[in-house]
Amino acid sequence: MAEETAIGDPMPTAPERLGLDPASEGSLTAEVVTADPIVETVPPEVSALRAFWSAFTENRGALLGLAVVVFIALLALFAPWVAPHSPIEQFRDHVQQPPVWAGGTWEFAFGTDAVGRDVLSRLIYGARISLGIGLSVMLVSVAVGIVLGLASAFMRGVVEVVVMRIMDLVVAIPSLVLAILVVAVLGPSLINTIIAVTVVYLPRYVRLVRASALAELSKEYVVAAQVAGVGRLRLMFVTVLPNCLAPLIVQAALGISDAILEAAALGFLGLGAQPPTPEWGAMLADSREFIRAAPWIVTLPGLAILVTVVAINLMGDGLRDALDPKLRRS
């Protein structure tokens, strides 16, 4: 759609090249534009949304990713109704019961763990925790990233230098090592996992917002708004920010999956959610000694992480291709 409307663009420049006088140029331009039926009949907003959706749905992988993400999100949302058991109840008569395809019963479809907790229920509740961490990290880091990024783009000077140097430092420390440092200081817990992972991923958003804001600031509409007397805050958040959103949305989507992986790694190291919280990474850590005796306790939580992260990444790649053609991987 967007490409079709662009066809109108080269036409007005034609008279210049043909050496026509400027007076006739205006009328010719108007004629060409009105003669193009597409430009007239499709209002621009609808076409942008539709263009996005048609580009997104064109990508089968992205659709599949979206479907899986929606499914997992629904499971997480309705966990108390979907899960067959409580995630922390210990069925002492059913310790390490194999899943149904390995000779178990339907009562515990995915088997039970070393203390008799239902693995399926723990996985379903675990989706709440992992998606919750992913979303909170994303929301907080996008919000803080927008504020710090816009602030350094608009104020320049000391603010920019200080903010960007701090971001450089955060990037220099390996992600997991920094997260470990933060958790070591704050103590291991779910909230502190979120804080640690947010600190680790903040620089991406700050840098992205700053870079796109700087690119926008040199454009004429910003100058026009300034001349029209638009206040600084309005200029930052209403005039410029909406034009920086496309890459930010893409980064935010991909950031959810990175946050989930990082949080699961912390959980695995015992520095994330504490027992008996059914966090996927922590479940894996608990299962390590049962590699031989109960392989399903090892296999399933990791599979849950992998499927969730792959689905979000597929969706994020689709978002990028649809929203931001410049970033498209050829």
């Binding site: 999956s257 590699i291 939580p301 990791g302």
Partner: peptide
């Protein structure tokens, strides 16, 4: 997208 700690456990297994 791989949680490498799980990948390691799978390979050991």
């Amino acid at each position: 997208s791989m949680p490498i700690f799980w990948w390691g456990l799978l390979l050991i297994m």
